[in-house]
C-alpha cells in the first residue's frame, strides 16, 4: 500500500533555477561540513606535529645516546641519581624531578581546590536563596576569566610573603605557593562542573528525601551528592588535568629547582614550566629540543586520557539521572 503511494507520485520536473538552487544548497552544506572537520584536524595535527619533533629522540643516534629512555626514567650513577640539567657538559635528563614537582604542586592545589569547589557548588546549588545563587554563580565563574599570568603575578607579589610567614618556609618561591595559586585557577573548573551535576539531579529526589524527614543538609549530602557523584568526580578529574597542564602560574611561583623532594616547602619544577622556561634558548633540532617536545607529548597524553575519563563520567551521570527520572 505504502509502496503504491510513493510510486504513484512522479518526480517533479525541476526548473533550471530550482536545480541551481539545489546545487547551491549542496555546496553550502558541503562547505559547512568541511569546516566542521577543522576541530578534528587540529587535534590530530597537534599530536602529529608535537610528536614529530620528539621523534628524533628515538631515530637519531646522537640523541639516543644523550637522552635514552633509561637516562630519562632510571636512577643514574653519581651523587645525584635524578637530575634535570640538559644544558651542561654532560647533560642530565632525568624526568623524575619534573614528575615529582608536577605531582607535588598538583596535589597541593587539588587538596585545596576540591573541597572548596565542591562545597561552594553545594552551597550554590542546594542552600543559597535564588537571588544569591544567581549572583554567586557568575561571580565564581569570573575567577576563570583572570589570565593565569595575572594569578602568577598575584602569587609572586601578594601570596608569597603571606605563605612564607604563615608556614615558616625558607624560600619565597616553593611548591606550596605554586599549589595554592594553582588552586585559584582550578576552583572555577571544579565549581562549574560540580554545580552542573548537582543541578541535574531531579527535584523528586530532594522532595522524597525531605518528605521522609531528612534535613536539608542530609538531603544534600546523602541523596543529591551521591546521585551526582560521577559528575563531581568528572569535575575533579578535569581540574586535575587543568592543574597538570597549567604553565604560567607554576613557572612564576614554584622556584623551578629540579629537586626530588616531597617537602612542600622546597622549590619544585613542573613539566609544563620546563618547556616554557627552556624552549626559548634551545637549539632547533638538538636532543634538548626534542626532549622538550617529548615532555609536550607526555602532557598531551595525560590530559587527553583525563579528559576522556571525565567526559565519560559526565555522560554517565546525565544518562542515569534522566533515565531514572522519566
Amino acid at each position: 500500500m505504502e509502496q503504491g503511494l510513493t510510486h504513484s507520485v512522479a518526480a517533479p520536473r525541476l526548473s533550471a533555477a530550482a536545480r541551481r538552487r539545489q546545487l547551491r544548497e549542496k555546496a553550502v552544506a558541503g562547505f559547512i561540513t568541511l569546516m566542521a572537520f577543522t576541530g578534528i584536524a587540529a587535534l590530530v595535527l597537534i599530536i602529529v606535529f608535537v610528536a614529530k619533533e620528539a621523534l628524533t629522540l628515538f631515530t637519531d643516534a646522537d640523541a639516543r645516546h644523550e637522552a635514552s629512555l633509561s637516562k630519562m626514567f632510571l636512577p643514574q650513577e653519581g651523587r645525584y641519581p635524578f637530575r634535570w640539567q640538559p644544558v651542561s657538559d654532560t647533560p642530565k635528563v632525568s624526568m623524575i624531578p619534573l614528575f615529582v614537582g608536577t605531582l607535588k604542586i598538583t596535589l597541593v592545589s587539588m587538596l585545596v581546590a576540591v573541597p572548596m569547589g565542591i562545597f561552594s557548588a553545594l552551597f550554590v546549588a542546594e542552600f543559597a536563596p535564588r537571588r544569591l545563587r544567581e549572583l554567586l554563580k557568575p561571580v565564581i565563574e569570573l575567577l576563570a576569566g583572570i589570565p593565569s599570568v595575572v594569578l602568577g603575578f598575584f602569587a609572586l607579589m601578594v601570596l608569597s610573603p603571606m605563605v612564607k610567614s604563615l608556614f615558616h618556609l625558607d624560600r619565597p618561591l616553593n611548591g606550596t605557593l605554586a599549589g595554592l595559586a594553582l588552586a585559584l585557577a582550578i576552583v572555577p573548573v571544579i565549581f562549574t562542573v560540580s554545580e552542573d551535576a548537582l543541578t541535574a539531579v531531579p527535584r523528586s529526589y530532594r522532595e522524597a528525601s525531605l518528605a521522609l524527614g531528612a534535613t536539608l543538609w542530609e538531603t544534600a549530602w546523602k541523596v543529591v551528592l551521591p546521585a551526582a557523584a560521577p559528575g563531581i568526580l568528572a569535575a575533579c578529574v578535569l581540574g586535575f588535568g587543568r592543574a597538570i597542564g597549567e604553565t604560567m602560574i607554576v613557572l612564576m611561583a614554584s622556584g623551578n629547582a629540579d629537586l626530588v623532594s616531597w617537602n612542600l616547602g622546597d622549590s619544585a619544577r613542573s613539566l609544563s614550566a620546563t618547556i616554557a622556561a627552556e624552549m626559548g634558548e634551545v637549539v632547533v633540532g638538538s636532543p634538548h629540543y626534542s626532549l622538550l617536545f617529548f615532555i609536550g607529548v607526555e602532557l598531551f597524553i595525560f590530559t587527553f586520557v583525563l579528559n576522556m575519563v571525565a567526559s565519560t563520567w559526565t555522560k554517565k551521570v546525565l544518562q542515569r539521572l534522566t533515565g531514572s527520572a522519566s
Partner: peptide, 25 residues
C-alpha cells in the same frame, strides 16, 4: 560525534602544548 569528542579534548590540551604545536606546525 567525533567532532564533539575532538572539541572537548581540544579544550583540555594544555596551553603550553599549543605553543609547541605553533612552533612545530
Amino acid at each position: 560525534r567525533w567532532v564533539r569528542v575532538a572539541v572537548v579534548n581540544l579544550a583540555g590540551v594544555p596551553s603550553i602544548v599549543f605553543g609547541l604545536f605553533g612552533l612545530g606546525f
